[in-house]
Nucleic acid binder design. Structure first.
Lengths: 160, 160
DNA sequence: TATTGTTATACTCTATAACTATA
DNA sequence: TATAGTTATAGAGTATAACAATA
């Protein structure tokens, strides 16, 4: 059982990264490419949102609340495919930052009617612009046609 | 401050799901569509791999080891963009299932030379076939041309 | 000094169950 | 009975730091 050793280290002598992943079956799977893309994007996005005191989830909630004034927490959770229980801390966070408010729903005294504050709207606009710039960076080396195509295909995929 | 209540419940009277996410800024971001796609794919993939006693990470490691015989743990970690420390439990798991073996590297007594067993190769082939079928299901309602296009664009994106 | 594998730790995210007040 | 919000909890997954053996 003579086990021949590899050149090790992960960086070849010329300084170029050797990525043995290309020699596996993984790049054949579109699902795996989607995962890797998301990891890359997420890393940059997290940094960006940190500058606004936002997490990815809280930005998503803020965006849905702005698009759907007086929506309640359960419906936001359903829209984002997250659990109702997880909404509490996110809404707490956003309320603490004075970005949204929990108004009392008139027709149902169990529920809140979520609404963004002026500050919430203003921050959302700024973050939106920052994310557009971030995506321009991420997709810098693929053409506009390819980018549009990517967007359209993913939209169809997500819509089921 | 008259807060008009919404129709609530998340499912309209006709039984159709109302997804207010389409009324937010989120679907404008390709990054968010990638995230949602990954969540959808991952849910199905997890179930699939569970039937083989594999996690997503352990399947990835098995695949890289098979594609790069006698690779060491650090290089696998680098290829998959995960931490070296996280490799330990994954390799333990794969070794416990008799899918890969930790051989001693000849040239470097600190490192292991990872190699898949016969059982590992056979399982990998079966899982690979199952994932291909899984992706056929996931991408059932988009054309082959679009699917090829999606794959090519994501490949370019991941490669940097 | 630097690197491999390892352990411990912590932090985030997610998933589940149970409770209260309303419906 | 069922639902909205809440709390507590446990499980993943991930990231960091430190250590022993070896380079």
């Amino acid at each position: 059982m003579t086990t021949q050793a590899r050149t090790s280290t992960g960086t070849a002598q010329n300084g170029e990264l050797l990525t043995p992943i290309s020699k596996s079956a993984l790049p054949d799977f579109t699902g795996y490419l989607i995962k890797r893309s998301w990891v890359t994007i997420q890393r940059d996005l997290r940094e960006l949102l940190l500058g606004f005191d936002l997490s990815q989830r809280s930005m998503s909630v803020l965006s849905v609340v702005i698009g759907n004034p007086d929506i309640n927490q359960s419906d936001v959770a359903a829209a984002l495919s997250i659990e109702r229980s997880g909404m509490v801390v996110i809404v707490d966070e956003l309320e603490g930052l004075d970005l949204i408010r929990r108004e009392r729903a008139l027709s149902d005294r169990r529920a809140y009617a979520l609404r963004a504050t002026l500050k919430g709207h203003q921050l959302h606009d700024r973050v939106r612009a920052a994310i557009i710039a971030h995506e321009d960076r991420i997709f810098a080396n693929i053409s506009h046609a390819e980018r549009d195509s990517l967007h359209a295909i993913l939209l169809k995929l997500v819509e089921d």
